[in-house]
Write a protein that binds this DNA or RNA. Sequence first.
DNA 1: GTTAGCACTCTACCTTATTGAGTGCTAAAG
DNA 2: CTTTAGCACTCAATAAGGTAGAGTGCTAAC
Lengths: 347, 347
Amino acid sequence: MVEEISARKEKVLKAIIQEHILTAEPVGSRTLARKYDFDFSPATIRNEMADLEEMGFLEQPHTSAGRIPSDLGYRFYVDRLMEDELEKPVSLKRYLKELSRQKSGVEDIMSGMARMLSRMVQYTAIVSEPGFSESKISRLELLPVSSRKLLLIVITSSGLVNDKIIQLEKKLTEEELENLNRILSRRLAGRKVSTITGAFLQDLEEELKRRLNYAAEIIKRLEQEITDILDKQEMKIYLDGTSYILEQPEFNDIQSLKKILKVLDREEELRRLVAGQEDELEVKIGTENKLQEMQNCSLVVATYRLQGGGTGRVGVIGPTRMEYPRVISSVDLTAELISKIISSSGR
Amino acid sequence: MVEEISARKEKVLKAIIQEHILTAEPVGSRTLARKYDFDFSPATIRNEMADLEEMGFLEQPHTSAGRIPSDLGYRFYVDRLMEDELEKPVSLKRYLKELSRQKSGVEDIMSGMARMLSRMVQYTAIVSEPGFSESKISRLELLPVSSRKLLLIVITSSGLVNDKIIQLEKKLTEEELENLNRILSRRLAGRKVSTITGAFLQDLEEELKRRLNYAAEIIKRLEQEITDILDKQEMKIYLDGTSYILEQPEFNDIQSLKKILKVLDREEELRRLVAGQEDELEVKIGTENKLQEMQNCSLVVATYRLQGGGTGRVGVIGPTRMEYPRVISSVDLTAELISKIISSSGR
DNA sequence: GTTAGCACTCTACCTTATTGAGTGCTAAAG
DNA sequence: CTTTAGCACTCAATAAGGTAGAGTGCTAAC
């Protein structure tokens, strides 16, 4: 890969990849010469192709077919050849305005963004809900719902809301509840979720025991529920545009189609797929992906960060033969949009 | 359909349908005679088949193939022939316990039930979130989140929670907020959502204006947001087990597969698909379904009702050649389970 | 009314032939 | 030394023919 590669080879490689992305067919020297007017002949192209194949950038489905890019070829394309194709797409503002108006909860925003992204790129889009752990708690409250049922609500400074209904053995009086809320509020508000761990919890438990005279088990239970809701690692995954996969000619045979759709049907797999803390945009091409079933797919994922803390991931799943420039720009844009929308509705 | 049909014809029809459900192949007189030991010969079966075809219960893909059931045939099977196959499946209690323990929010329950159902029947399952309109409001609260941002929370007596962040131009003092909450609570708590309409809202607005001295627009805005959250018709749809469709031999050709998966990718379509107020379990077979793209699918849907009011739908989508007895029992069971779980976690 | 027998039908599948896009190599030209 | 024209060769994809087998409908006998 560190090998030198002549300008002409780059030109040929780029043309092959672009052509293949367009047509999904192996591209031959003749076609290439016809469509792109190079100042050298098909024969020369053939020679270059042979070289590029030896270097690992191209592959030949069979002797008498054209060449298709290898994963390595795409990698080279993404890393070195496509920069000038990247377009900063249209104004964010239009989207921003439109979306932030109608949508209310974080959920709606997430699914809306997944939908928008998939429509934009015409591939499957995936968005993971922001995790709590890096957010600061803005408010935590226990509301009575019925005699022995409380609603535990946590709101983060970035505007995320999470709630859970908990059931207690004992009924709490209004006063008891008020006390409890006061203490919890004082101790937890403004705190980063990830700092709420062992020692701190111990301490909190002490205080609760000291200042309230409930049975120890109730306190234990409450604490359990609170850590539960804060820990919640299984952030929801929003998927949209699954059917775009069906349009891709490489998935015209049932076998590969099945493989992929099965993966998309399993939330845990998806979660693992987009997991990662990389700050910059990642592109996983074909076999770079660990998941066997997805090895003729590519994945473009970015991280979004909310102002109040908390991060999530946005991505696109498509065939290795993906329109990388367009997809990368769009994913980037979407990540930015998500931060902006949530932060603006949350300021 | 009102036509008399001999006991022997019923026997043959039932056998054909069961055999076809099992094998997905056209069934011929020979095979049938071999597998089921009737006290009459293949030739007789052929005669009966010819009759049944004329009556519209069977179809012949081509002259030299066996018969397959028509939609009408399945309909007759579902209505008249399969009763004795219906099994009340295993104890609910086991599921109930398992599910209600881990799951917390309504969301988790819904997606959990969709997953369970699809695993049970090995087809695609669909669950729609309960609508608000028939529920009673148990609690409605505005919580301050940041300077000009409030969290509006509505909890129904059946345990549903819905929240929305709203942004105001003016900052409310703690006291103002408390007043507001008191009035809203008094007026709305215990009320059925569907009764909150024109006149009542007018009245509420009057009271707010009289008792609080905010700008009229803020009151207007609040009211807007409240009706917004209560009206929310677009209840979420949970889908699980999409990939089971891939296992069905009738969808081994890309064309039909595409058609269906495209439908499943559109939430609005799904919503329309399961919509309906029928109280008993509905079975829509093939062309009985209005949606063109789904005309070689069947749909089994039931309604579930929460104790505090509020209803939603549970269903299964599969090929017309579906194991109706098993599916019907399971959908029925699931509907029952959903009511029980939510009601128990919500009591 | 029921059944055995038989000719007939039609798909699924296998085999073979043909076509054409594309290659690699060689040798000539720049 | 690089580029290019020419040409023989390869191989998937398509078409065409040929066979097998499951199944039917009809007729005639029971």
